[in-house]
Structures are given as C-alpha cells and as structure tokens.
Nucleic acid binder design. Structure first.
Lengths: 131, 131
DNA sequence: ATACATGCAAAGAATTTGCAGCTTG
DNA sequence: CAAGCTGCAAATTCTTTGCATGTAT
C-alpha cells in the first residue's frame, strides 16, 4: 500500500473495512481494543498517505471531523442530520449528472476541474418516521 | 440584520462587500486598518449569526478556513488549486442539474435533502497558461 | 434600565509534526 | 544497514466561549 508494511497499516485497513465511514478517532478506538498501543498520530499519518495515494477516500464535512471510505469510487455521501448516519449514493444517473456539472462549471468559470467534494445533509426515512 | 446595530457589524458588512470571498481573518485584517480595536472573536461571532440568519453564505472548504459570501444565492464555488482564487458559478443549467441531483439522491438513499455544500477545485485558465 | 455586543484571553477540537527509538526489506 | 515507521507529546490552526465591561434601544 505505502512504502512498507507494518502491523499498524494492516490494522487500519481492516478497521476501514469493518467500520462504516469512520473518523480517524473511531479507527483509533477500534484498533485499540486489540492493540492498545496504537497512536492516534499513526492513524492520521497513514490515513493521510492512503488518501493521497488514492487507496482511501477522504470525506470532508465542513463542520465535523473527516471520515474515510475504502470505496474509492466517485460517489455521494449523504448524512442524516438527526442520527448522523452516512449513506452512500452511486448510480449511472448520478455519474451522468456529475459529469454535466463538471462541464458546465468549466464553461462558466474556465477552471479545469480536478477535485470535487459534495456533502449533502437531510433527514433519513427512519428518523422521519419517529417524529 | 441581527438584534442590534453596532459599528462592528456595519464594518463587517462593508468588508464582505469589498473583499472577494474573504475568510474571517481577512475581514478582521481589513477592518483593523480603520478600526484597530476590532476583535477576531467579534468577527467570528457576527459571521456566525449572519450565516445562521441567511444574510451571508458560509463556504466550507475542507482543508482551508471558511470563507464568506454576501451573494446568498445557491451557487457553486470553484477554487483554483494554484492561485487560490475562488470563482462563482451560477446558471439555470446548474440549478437544473442541482435539482436533479437532489431528486436522484432522495430516490437512492431515502434521505430528504435539506442542505448541500459542494466544493470544487481545479486549475484556472490563467494559471494553466503560466505552466 | 436592561438586554445584547464587544474585547480579551483562555479553551476546544481536529490534525500535524519533531524526535528518538524500533522495524522492515 | 538504511529508509521508513511508530509512539509520544508538543505545536498548529481555526473557531468558539466565558466574563467583565460597554452600548443601543
């Protein structure tokens, strides 16, 4: 994955697979259960490297800690404002819309788009039922 | 605007009109030239209130300080990775695409979308020429 | 008057970094 | 062995907050 293997890197990978869009600190907590010595700095360091090399997707939510996703496809994340759960959304229709937005933005601004991050919030169906 | 008028609030409004997508600290620097006593806390406090009441748009760029925009229309912001300039993009076409994304997301995830924030990065035309 | 704002400084939260020592190839 | 890692703790950066004092209505 990066330059060298280490037990810690493998544990971080495993945590990313087990947990659902975890934050660095959630990953840290998870690993600590089996390996209490792991340091939060190491988790951050490796997530940063993995995000840079494209092995992991960093999801940035302005008002909350970053979350990470082993699904590196270009897809949407929608967070429920109430329960905090993060939903993935991926479909051909959305891909098509994304491509059209890129094109429209390049035409309007002259900027050649390289990165996009979009963050949607709302109320999920089960939270809507409760209220 | 908020509950009461204050010289500081008026200065912040003016700074928002003069500066292009400024950060809180840029606004603070700008006002300090004519009114050195203004406190950064006051700038943050008022921007927060104005954003909450919808008088100003908070633009959140994961990896950089928030920026603020007196143009409160639902529009895109594209930042050049090289020079850092922020470009606005607003058109009927984009509005239409946004609406379709909302709809598609609600269908896919069942979440009723309430907020969206999107952050695009790329290289602007003048930076492309230079390299 | 009195509710709200300000300035200041301290506190917070998330993330990064320097460094000495341990590991991997 | 050398290049990379790790844990730890301190440092950074952005933003928020508590509090005593000032001010608009």
């Amino acid at each position: 994955m990066n330059k060298r293997y280490s037990a810690q890197k493998m544990m971080i990978e495993e945590a990313l697979m087990r947990l659902d869009h975890p934050t660095a600190s959630e990953i840290h907590d998870y690993i600590k259960k089996s390996y209490p010595n792991i340091s939060l700095g190491t988790v951050y360091r490796n997530l940063g490297l993995m995000a840079e090399s494209g092995d992991v997707l960093r999801i940035t939510f302005g008002d909350a800690p970053d979350r990470f996703d082993i699904n590196t496809h270009d897809h949407f994340h929608v967070m429920c404002k109430k329960c905090g759960q993060v939903f993935d959304a991926e479909s051909d229709r959305l891909k098509e819309l994304l491509a059209q937005i890129d094109q429209s933005l390049e035409e309007t601004t002259g900027v050649h788009i390289e990165n996009r991050s979009m963050y949607y919030q709302g109320i999920c169906s089960s939270c809507r039922e409760q209220s």
